[in-house]
Design a protein around this nucleic acid. Structure first.
Lengths: 343, 343
DNA sequence: GCTCCAAATGGAAACGTTTACAATTGAATT
DNA sequence: AATTCAATTGTAAACGTTTCCATTTGGAGC
């Protein structure tokens, strides 16, 4: 490495200068052959393009980004690696494609410092904008006064920040879910909540509480369980609930994964889901319809959420005013895990 | 925008020059305060750091990347947005974290030109390396002589390319799956294959054929179905198979999704899975254990695949020789969807 | 007070592009 | 033939860092 001669390029990335030298034209001409071909005489253009091909020249995007101050890249930051977020990602991709942007996904693990890391990447021009699909604790991002890149929040408002937001009304949707159980005649209803720190989980919990209160019922009759949105936690939580006396006749889980966990436990206890105990989930992930029995749940338009987020990001990137708060509709999908209470 | 004065910085990204000016020190000093603090007198360092904080300065990573010619970024390119690949991603992340790298995921949709796009991104220094989790058609990448960035292939060899590879033996694993069915006494066995263009799917098919041939059976007795690894295709394919006379007593699907689809159809036909018809999948995705009945399948160590790929990429990035071909073990997971043939 | 030397700082080149501006070319118009 | 002007090309400045090398600073040792 040390003793390498200067003449010999580092055996690989050939740069614009070398192409120019090869032909005896200026850098500008080579650059233009790629970015503004119409500025060149046809014959020159051909000659340059041929040389580019011959030498295997690929423009260094980093240098271009630095000069142009844009990368045509968008990051999607998700809090966890679940299929749910993949669909949001898919929607973003659909939107981005239309405008010639490339989308990359980063994983924050619900860790605000990792979220900040991606934001910093964008602030320093590694990407032009970010779509934060997150449920991050509020406030942490404002900790230090930083240059904020174009950000759109998907799925849930980010408190303390004025990002354009594309979301669903988690609170209302939870009321819908709870009301469904109430309408079936259930009175002993428990909720398995998501992480306490997550505003989204908090909103889902609030909806449950509000609906219960409206029906004159005590939302705190059963242990207040707050989990991490996993099947495993759903199983555990359900064990705790079945140990109660009397046990609930219906359970509303804050997402499908925990609902599936709960059902696994119910089955294992020899009870029949939808008859002995009703279960309703949230999200309508694919497993909800595939699972046996198929899961009653709240459908969240994930793909659309991603798509609309990207549209808003577009506005931001174009310097146009973006819609502040877009709320998409959820819907109650009634399948086989809910029915009237026994007896 | 036009009439903006030069003095007023673009109301946002403040650069190193401005920090230096603010303090009356040189650019070099500010740079060193962040990258080589020990080179500065304690008092200077404090003063610079304070100013950096006060002005909200964040180094422009693009400029740094250009100068340093590295980004400490790694891309993982997946062919489809399935949970299966998320786990590989998770493994890569675990490996990358250890070395202070950040991982971003891109989606190629099995489209070689999109795969090339990500490769180009890396070749032009947007990232330091790529892990290609792919089943791309061979040859297409070599189309034009390009500067090849550090690439590791995960899951499957990429034909015509000499990338270090971390994979499983799809052919052998398929033989294991088929032999399991044969050992149970099945003779009428069908295979639902993946996309014909995918070498991975081809290898899985080969394994099936080899095992059948070894047992003296005709692997082509049933329609040769090649799908797109989705539940929907599994459903369709199974319909076609049930229409045969006599229908197969066992089906080996090239992945769990298609296996689940097949089972859905079998159930819908009023038959019992594992008794009337046995089904075996491939991958051991999470749904395999959650599904009812739980799915017999081949476990692929996805997370480990990602982790080991990242280790190999490390070697590449360090200029060390990377292991050429790492083969991880698969295992047969026997659950409830396979049993002896009826009668 | 000098000399010497390490420690601390500054100046400027380099990373590889794009593009404003200047310079050249060449054909059309007078 | 001189003039004009569009089309084509070249020159060089920027984008914002990091770091080599040179220069300054400030003690320690004499």
């Amino acid at each position: 490495m040390r003793g390498q001669t200067k003449k010999q390029p580092p055996s690989g990335s050939v740069n614009i200068k070398q192409v120019a030298a090869e032909l005896g034209v200026s850098l500008a001409t080579v650059s233009r052959a790629l970015s503004h071909p119409h500025l060149l005489r046809a014959e020159t253009r051909e000659r340059v393009l041929a040389a580019i091909d011959r030498l295997g020249y690929q423009p260094n995007l980093i240098a271009r980004d630095l000069r142009l101050r844009e990368s045509r890249l968008v990051f999607v930051v998700v809090p966890s690696l679940s299929p749910f977020f993949l669909e949001v990602f898919r929607g973003v991709e659909r939107g981005a494609r239309e405008g010639g942007y490339t989308v990359l996904m980063g994983h924050s693990e619900r860790d605000p410092s990792r979220e900040q890391l991606f934001l910093d990447q964008v602030a320093s021009r590694r990407a032009d904008g970010v779509i934060l699909v997150t449920s991050a604790e509020p406030g942490l991002m404002a900790a230090r006064k930083r240059h904020m890149p174009p950000v759109v929040a998907a799925l849930e408002t980010i408190e303390g920040q004025a990002f354009p937001t594309v979301r669903v009304d988690h609170r209302k949707a939870s009321m819908d879910a709870t009301n469904h159980l109430l309408a079936l005649g259930h009175r002993r209803i428990a909720h398995i909540a998501g992480p306490q720190k997550s505003p989204m989980a908090a909103h889902r919990l609030e909806g449950f509480q509000a609906a219960m209160a409206a029906a004159g019922l005590d939302a705190t009759a059963y242990p207040q369980l707050a989990g991490n949105f996993t099947v495993a936690f759903g199983e555990e939580a359900m064990e705790a609930l079945l140990a109660c006396n009397p046990p609930p006749t219906a359970v509303f889980a804050a997402n499908d994964e925990m609902a599936v966990g709960a059902i696994q436990t119910i089955k294992r206890a020899g009870l029949q889901v939808g008859r002995d105990v009703s279960v309703i989930g949230f999200d309508d992930q694919r497993i909800a319809s595939l699972y046996e029995p198929s899961l009653t749940t709240i459908k969240v338009p994930t793909e659309e959420l991603g798509y609309r987020s990207m549209l808003s990001l577009w506005d931001l990137l174009r310097g146009r005013p973006a819609e502040e708060d877009t709320v998409l509709q959820t819907s109650l999908i009634i399948r086989s895990t809910t029915g009237p209470p026994p007896g």
